[in-house]
Design a protein around this nucleic acid. Sequence first.
DNA 1: TGCCTATTTGACACTCAGTGCCAGAAGGTC
DNA 2: GACCTTCTGGCACTGAGTGTCAAATAGGCA
Lengths: 198, 198
Amino acid sequence: MSSEGLWSRTRRTAIAEITEVAMELFLAKGFEATTFDDIAAASGVSRRSVLRYFGTKEDIVLGRLADEGRRVRTVLAARPDDEPLWTALLNTMVTLSEEPGVDRERLLKVSEMMYGTPSLRARSVEKHLQWQTDLIPEVARRLGGGPDDDLTTLRATAVIAGAVACLDVAGETWTRRKGVVPLRDLLTAAFDSLRDAT
Amino acid sequence: MSSEGLWSRTRRTAIAEITEVAMELFLAKGFEATTFDDIAAASGVSRRSVLRYFGTKEDIVLGRLADEGRRVRTVLAARPDDEPLWTALLNTMVTLSEEPGVDRERLLKVSEMMYGTPSLRARSVEKHLQWQTDLIPEVARRLGGGPDDDLTTLRATAVIAGAVACLDVAGETWTRRKGVVPLRDLLTAAFDSLRDAT
DNA sequence: TGCCTATTTGACACTCAGTGCCAGAAGGTC
DNA sequence: GACCTTCTGGCACTGAGTGTCAAATAGGCA
């Protein structure tokens, strides 16, 4: 039927199930207090396999964040060309933050865990650094220079880093305020602040 | 003579010596390939003591970066009040980057190691997050709001995050270009980019 | 100087993350 | 069913980091 073999299908469901089980444990016992042995026992897979699937505990929580890099790029590329760059970046972030299918309560809990766990926070920042790399070509194009031009790359990277920094700030504030202030508003405020202050 | 006891004096010299020895090992064998056992053996202290002094290998490399947070705040506070905020932040970064007593060759090697080692890079970003917190009061003041005001805090954090992002970008570019372009110029270019692009 | 107290050190044992390896199980192909 | 490929689980290992405790050492005091 599907051209996808059983291997990759079971792999995906396994990853999904393990993630689900592990997140429950993380939220119940805390991230650092949960071991790979706990996760393996609770999900009925060997410790070795869990480690093969994820590599690190951080990846269980932030795994999908890696794919988001491509997603960000796609969304940004879809913004109209005549939209100012900064506005396009803001709208990209807003679009991504409003994707459906996310349980708000759960997201809040995960966010709190993330901001409260140094290693998770660090990993999250690492992923955002990856986003920067992913976005350089598109932003460089909008800045009107080739991606091979060193100055254009520097400028693009600076702008993206600024935008990602705004995303971080907005996300952290959203979490600290227990999700009562819409992320969209926080994003807008952060982007506006940087625009006005510079 | 000094009111400082021998305990803390020996502690400081021990930390300095271990750092020195460890950095040599890191640069020679690579950061991840160097173990605490190596460092302990080379510095004539027990593994346990090295771990007590530093806690993590990352802290051996980036230990002093933590203190820099207060330093940044001091330098920013010393900028004239009528200087535009963004300019004041740029000048602060330039001042810090031009502090004497740093061996350029060595700094380049350390930077290359840092940007090439994920865990070090992550730790470095973590330290920068701490700077953000340290700078909020002074930036909030310059923005004309109290530090208790939520919106002012958000705005201040966003601006600082943008500035720190520029520092990161400039530092990374400086390293990638083997230190041939003055950091001052890269910082200026990054800050200008974010100003123009927003 | 000798004694007492507080701090530091080194050694040992321990938990846990992460890696390498290998035999066996299970999917895919002819 | 035979054969190849991929995945799994188990085992052993290295290295980071923590807790504990006895021995060593500094500072203060008689």
